[in-house]
């Protein structure tokens, strides 16, 4: 989805604010949130569903929320949606029904022949799905070169929406900074993005 989470290249966020010697957790509740996520992720939801639950936050809330506030929102949202907890239980503060049986994704990684090899020229599709995707907006409809072949990994666009069997090869695709940002970018600079096979189409050799 074309949400505010897809921040690459966006103007207006100001300078990077560097906190010296910052603690691992700023508040004890942040550690609680991390632990709740780690104990429920992979049992009641997967990481793509988790990311998408954050992306589904209203844009203004997403931008106002701290990192662990987003996590809390996502864990709460998914546990409600998966009937692990109910809204009434949350409001009343005690459990009234047991949690459903957890599921574990144990499907082995299939052997898939990658369509592309390092050095191949590709371009990215210009897609704007309503759901989850890991093809960032700033890299859609751009030309790049395959650098590394990975996977197969589950396609996040499917795995976030109930189809957990859509395995695909994935690639580190290198883009010239000027291809992404125009002539103001430096000619020497590159951005590498990991992209799933279905995001890519072969580019004719020049």
């Amino acid at each position: 989805m074309d949400g505010v989470h897809d921040m690459g290249g966006t103007h207006g966020f100001g300078a990077v604010n560097i906190e010296r010697d910052e603690p691992v957790f700023h508040h004890p509740w942040e550690g609680v949130v991390r632990a709740m996520m780690q104990r429920t992720n992979g049992r009641y939801y997967n990481l793509d569903e988790f990311r998408h639950a954050m992306e589904r936050m209203p844009s203004d809330e997403y931008l106002r929320a701290s990192y662990y506030e987003r996590w809390l929102h996502a864990v709460e949202t998914l546990l409600l949606e998966k009937d692990v907890i109910t809204r009434t239980e949350l409001t009343e503060g005690h459990a009234t029904h047991p949690a459903p049986e957890a599921t574990r994704e144990t499907e082995p990684r299939p052997a898939l022949e990658p369509r592309f090899q390092p050095g191949d020229r590709v371009s990215t599709r210009n897609i704007h799905p309503h759901g989850h995707t890991r093809l960032p907006r700033y890299a859609r409809g751009r030309r790049g070169v395959i650098r590394k072949v990975y996977g197969p990994f589950r396609l996040p666009d499917a795995n976030a929406h109930g189809d957990h069997h859509a395995w695909q090869p994935c690639y580190a695709v290198e883009f010239a900074a000027q291809e992404l940002w125009g002539d103001d970018a430096k000619q020497t600079d590159r951005v590498c993005i990991d992209l799933w096979e279905s995001y890519l189409v072969p580019e004719e050799k020049p």
Partner: peptide, 12 residues
């Protein structure tokens, strides 16, 4: 010096 930025978008 060329700058290579790696945008970690997958399981890598």
């Amino acid at each position: 010096v060329a700058v290579n930025v790696w945008d970690s978008s997958s399981d890598v």
